[in-house]
Amino acid sequence: GTLHLNGVTVKVPSLEKAIKAAKKFAKKYNLEVQVHGNTVHVH
């Protein structure tokens, strides 16, 4: 999967790991997580 954090793109081995990391990051910075196919966006 691919993880987008505020314009930074990170390749992640699995989508589940990407979503987990995204949710952790989003919670910390009070951001929103959106999943588009195998790409996770945090903004």
Rank of each mutant, 00 (worst) to 15 (best):
K23R: 12
L15N: 01
T39S: 11
V10L: 13
I19W: 05
H41W: 15
H43M: 10
Q34D: 05
F25G: 01
L5H: 06
G1Q: 11
V42M: 11
H41E: 13
K28T: 02
Y29F: 09
E32V: 14
V12Y: 15
E32P: 02
H41A: 11
K20N: 09
N38S: 07
L31G: 04
K11Y: 14
T2G: 05
V35S: 01
H36R: 08
A21S: 06
G1H: 11
H36N: 10
E32I: 14
T2C: 14
V33M: 06
V12H: 08
K23F: 08
T9G: 04
P13E: 12
K28A: 05
T2P: 04
H36S: 08
G1T: 11
V40T: 02
H43V: 13
K20G: 05
L31D: 00
V40E: 01
P13F: 09
V35Q: 03
N38P: 05
V10A: 04
V8E: 02
N6P: 11
K23L: 13
K28S: 01
K17S: 10
K11C: 15
G7E: 03
V10I: 15
Q34A: 10
K11R: 12
G7R: 06
S14H: 08
G1I: 15
V10P: 01
A22T: 02
K24D: 09
L31N: 02
E32L: 12
L3P: 03
K27P: 02
K24H: 09
K23I: 13
V10W: 15
V42Q: 02
A26L: 09
K23Y: 10
H4K: 09
V35I: 13
G1S: 10
N30W: 11
G7C: 15
A26T: 02
F25W: 13
L3F: 04
V40S: 02
P13G: 12
P13N: 11
S14A: 05
K28P: 01
E16F: 05
Y29Q: 02
K20M: 09
N38H: 07
N30R: 05
V33W: 07
E16Q: 10
G7I: 08
G37Q: 03
A18Q: 00
E32H: 12
V33L: 07
A22N: 00
H4S: 08
L5T: 03
E32G: 05
A26W: 09
Y29P: 00
N6Q: 08
G37F: 06
F25Q: 01
S14E: 04
T2F: 15
A21M: 14
G7T: 09
V33D: 00
A22S: 01
T9N: 07
N30D: 09
V12P: 01
A21G: 02
E32T: 14
H4R: 06
Q34F: 14
A26N: 02
H4G: 03
K17T: 09
A21P: 00
K23T: 09
N6G: 12
G1L: 10
K28E: 05
V35A: 04
E32W: 10
S14I: 08
N38D: 08
N38I: 13
V10R: 04
A22G: 03
V12M: 14
L15R: 01
K23A: 04
T39G: 03
V33T: 01
T9F: 12
T39D: 11
V40C: 05
L3G: 02
Q34K: 11
T2M: 12
A21W: 15
G7Q: 05
E16H: 10
V12A: 05
V42P: 02
G1E: 10
S14Q: 06
L31Y: 06
H43D: 04
T39N: 09
A21C: 15
S14G: 04
S14N: 13
L15G: 02
H36A: 07
V33P: 01
F25S: 01
K27S: 07
V12L: 14
A18S: 02
N6W: 15
I19M: 06
T9K: 09
K28Y: 08
V8R: 07
E32C: 15
A26D: 01
K28M: 07
V40W: 02
L5S: 03
K27F: 04
V10N: 03
F25Y: 13
S14V: 04
V33E: 00
K28H: 05
K23G: 02
N30T: 04
K27Q: 12
N6R: 04
T39W: 09
N38A: 05
V40G: 03
A18H: 00
V35M: 04
H4M: 12
H36V: 14
K28F: 08
K28W: 10
A21T: 06
G7H: 11
V40Y: 01
P13K: 12
E32A: 09
N6F: 15
K11G: 06
Q34E: 13
T39I: 13
A26S: 02
L5V: 12
A26C: 07
E16Y: 08
H43C: 14
V42I: 14
K17H: 11
V33C: 03
N6I: 12
T9D: 04
V8F: 13
V35R: 01
L15T: 03
E32N: 11
H4D: 05
E16S: 10
K23P: 00
H43K: 11
V42E: 01
H43I: 14
K11V: 11
A18P: 00
N38M: 10
I19Y: 05
V33A: 01
K20L: 11
V12F: 15
V35K: 04
S14L: 07
H41M: 15
K28R: 09
K20E: 12
H36Q: 08
Y29E: 01
G7Y: 06
I19Q: 01
N6M: 15
P13I: 13
N6D: 05
K11T: 09
L3A: 02
V42Y: 06
K11W: 15
V35Y: 04
G7D: 05
V42F: 13
L5Q: 03
V40L: 06
V40I: 14
K24R: 12
K17A: 14
E32Y: 09
A26Q: 04
H36C: 04
E16K: 11
T2Y: 15
N38C: 00
H41I: 14
G7L: 08
L15K: 01
L15P: 01
V10F: 15
N6Y: 11
V12Q: 04
